[in-house]
Design a protein around this nucleic acid. Structure first.
Length: 417
RNA sequence: CGGGGCGUAGUAUACCGGUAGUACGCUUGAUUUGGGAUCAAGUAGACUGGGUUCGAUUCCCAGCGCCCCGACCA
């Protein structure tokens, strides 16, 4: 993409109505736009990142057999009355049909999906399976905060598993847990993300949260650095710790943000909806369910919180809006522009995603923008590099510039694809 | 939802009961060109409604919005 065509502009100043690092950097770099408190639009660069995050999640969900679907945002109260959640949940956004009937805007999808499955699930032969979606969730939070970390409207990946019995459920639950760990690894959050024991789970004693250490987080968790696990505040008791074989003296309290959560639902929903199947003996059995959530937007915010530096964002390569930021100095008639354009075409031919800063600006501004936007590899073409017959490369995260042959650049990029 | 703070150009900020100033951005021209350039000329602004007043962006009231702390967070 040509940067001269990108409609978003970078800003030198932080917006005055943002305090959190993620919102400041993402706004300054033109990734997001605040529509209102807790409600953000994703602009071209931001949406590219969002889609990449979703793609990583999608791939890992597909590996464990998840089937992607897309449920509705508008929901009817009848289904929610069956689990007694219509009137109990206080952060519903609700609305009405023209005829006066109540509707809710989805804040989760257990009820509609469980109900839907009655149509498709009747035999033990149908089980197990799982289904997931990326869907907008609405939650009327009393207070939105921390930029895109806690919003009133957000995309969520929610997967629901359906199993014959508790054992089969546990097998899947473990697979899902590992898939989550893989996702955080691919997103560059591995070192700071702890699998955290939390309350909940119907048959199992605990649910699991995935908590990433950052001062921007709202939660306090107690981590065991060596074992790489943690417990959250609700279950931080002597009994639980001895259950889990943890010692209080090994634990440190840390601020963290919940980037994912997996939960055994047992038969809570299948009972409410009478979602059952006939087993081999022809006997009716309730389906055992689980739910597994990740917020891609919150992940994006977390990545910015955790990985950015004083100059701007540092995207992990899997989710960067582009693989290469190509800069050239000089106007459209300059030799370096022509060379850079030529390199731009070659990168495109090789299917390498490249943002070409073809704007006629001073070098300093281009460098500053490039650092702010945070694309992993910066490639510079200038009179200086042309004289050497090479291009200059620098990785955003670390290290200085170096001159290399174009052929070497292509080889390196192919390797990381 | 309780407490506190704040609403001035696209952005960030200032002053003021008497025609709103600065910087960045943007436009035009010139000089520049490897870390946010310089000069000149332009562009563009008081959240909404009511009140007080000769006169309100300024003071008062209400609404709306934003931020922070706390509570809350299937």
């Amino acid at each position: 993409m040509l940067q001269s065509n990108l409609f978003t502009k970078t800003k030198k100043e932080a917006p005055k109505n943002e305090v959190s690092k993620n919102a400041i950097l993402l706004s300054r770099a033109g990734f997001i736009h605040k529509e209102m408190a807790g409600v953000y639009s994703f602009l071209p660069l931001g949406w590219r990142v969002m889609q990449k995050i979703m793609q990583v999640i999608r791939e890992e969900m597909n590996v464990i057999g998840g089937q992607e679907l897309f449920l509705t945002s508008l929901q009817i109260p009848e289904l929610w009355s069956k689990t007694n959640r219509w009137s109990v949940v206080d952060n519903w956004f609700t609305t009405k049909l023209k005829n006066g009937a109540d509707l809710g805007l989805a804040f989760t999808h257990e009820e509609p999906l469980t109900n839907l499955m009655k149509e498709h699930l009747s035999s033990y032969r149908d089980l197990p399976f799982s289904a997931y979606q990326f869907q907008t969730k609405f939650r009327n939070e009393e207070r939105a905060k921390s930029g895109i970390m806690r919003t009133r409207e957000f995309i969520m990946k929610d997967l629901y598993s359906f199993s014959k019995d508790e054992k089969e459920h546990q097998d899947f639950y473990e697979k899902a847990k590992n898939a989550y760990i893989k996702i955080f690894k691919r997103l560059g959050l591995e070192d700071k993300t702890y699998t955290t024991f939390a309350s909940g789970g119907t048959f199992s004693k605990y649910s699991h949260e995935f908590q990433t250490l950052t001062s921007a987080g709202e939660d306090t968790i107690y981590i065991d650095r060596n074992k790489k696990i943690a417990v959250n505040k609700e279950v931080y008791t002597d009994k639980v710790l001895s259950d889990l074989g943890l010692k209080k003296s090994d634990l440190e309290g840390e601020k963290a943000v919940e980037v994912g959560n997996i939960f055994s639902l047992g038969t809570r929903f299948s009972e409410s909806f009478d979602l059952n199947y006939l087993d081999e003996k022809g006997e009716k059995q309730l389906v055992v369910m689980g739910s597994y959530g990740i917020g891609p937007g919150r992940l994006m915010g977390t990545i910015v919180e955790v990985l950015s530096d004083e100059k701007g964002i540092v995207w992990p390569s899997e989710v960067a809006p582009f693989a290469v930021h190509l800069l050239c100095f000089g106007d459209k008639s300059s030799k370096s522009y022509k060379e850079a354009k030529n390199l731009y075409r070659q990168l495109q031919e090789r299917k390498i995603e490249v943002l070409f800063d073809d704007r006629e600006m001073r070098a300093g501004e281009k460098f500053a923008d490039s650092d702010l936007i945070g694309i992993p590899l910066r490639v510079v073409v200038s009179d200086k590099t042309i004289a050497e017959g090479k291009v200059e490369v620098k990785s955003r995260g670390n290290g200085g510039e170096k001159l290399i042959e174009e052929a070497e650049l292509f080889a390196n990029l192919e390797k990381h694809k």
